[in-house]
Design a binder for these strands. Structure first.
Lengths: 159, 159
DNA sequence: CCAGCTTAGTTTCATATGTAACTAAGTCAA
DNA sequence: TTGACTTAGTTACATATGAAACTAAGCTGG
């Protein structure tokens, strides 16, 4: 196709009712940004400990609060229950977490990290905190505060 | 498990070298935020036109610039070439885009939206722009500017 | 020209993720 | 107590995604 036809198409594109520039579209920018952030992080726990994102998130919750039911991990991690169920299963198989019968409710177990699980947790935590520092290096605190405000406001607007 | 054991675990958790609170961890907040934003958007193009995210992104690029090679869509959309290849294939099958032989290079085709494709595009664009407005409603312009600065700075920090 | 390297795009394979159906257990009212 | 409803977690299915291998075409130095 030659330049004339290309310009013609661009003209037709421009004359459409709505001018739309993907590169300036807020949700697009958020996606690109998110992808970079999440990949930088996944790099750490995948390379060093072969954890899937859902497994790392489960570990992060259990490192902070032990003896949780799966449903409590769901709440605190914003993952759905299927992801948590699978993460728990895999981590249990790998010996990273322990299940105890919930005497109060036979449908669920109480979950916590095993010794090995905590060792992995203790290895990962400083690394991801360092990665967080690296990302945020040089960013003005007031800009970070604004960033948090925007995230909260948009989530509220979306209900 | 009883309360005593639970407290014991929490104590052990607290004594770990690094205190780590997932809910306050920047990459976690970004993920939760991103998920909400992207789902709000996907709702529109999926419900109304059964487009996958990668298809919508491809359409968004082609709506703006026609007669592109797949590689050019890859560059402009931050998707990988596999996703673009699949999106293009599906949209072509559905008659949403047209392929023309690239006389300059037999390995690639030049892509643009078909009439039907442009009709879908023209239907979606105002809806997603409205959704963008809804998200950002009431957010201070200076906070949005700060948000953009933070995204740029972090992406730079990550290279 | 033509053998070896590079590039564009596709396919294959492994894995991730979400919805819906399902199983097992608990609750509650009659 | 027991049958209908609810809840916790799992499994099945469909689809998404990305890395790596592959195919076809183009380029380049000799």
């Amino acid at each position: 196709m030659n330049d004339t036809a290309s310009s013609e198409t661009d003209r037709l594109a421009r004359q459409t009712e709505s001018v739309f520039d993907l590169q300036a579209f807020f949700p697009y920018l958020v996606r690109v940004f998110y992808t970079d952030v999440t990949n930088a992080l996944a790099e750490i726990y995948t390379r060093d400990h072969s954890l899937a994102p859902s497994e790392w998130r489960t570990m992060a919750i259990l490192g902070q609060h032990g003896h949780l039911r799966a449903a409590e991990i769901v709440e605190r991690s914003s993952m759905d229950k299927v992801s948590v169920s699978r993460a728990v299963k895999k981590m249990h198989e790998r010996g990273l977490l322990e299940k105890q019968n919930n005497t109060k409710d036979g449908r669920s177990s109480l979950l916590c990290l095993s010794g090995e699980g905590r060792a992995v947790y203790d290895d990962i935590v400083p690394k991801v905190l360092a990665a967080e520092q690296r990302m945020l290096a040089g960013v003005l605190p007031e800009d970070i505060a604004a960033f948090h405000r925007v995230m909260r406001a948009i989530r509220d607007n979306l209900n």
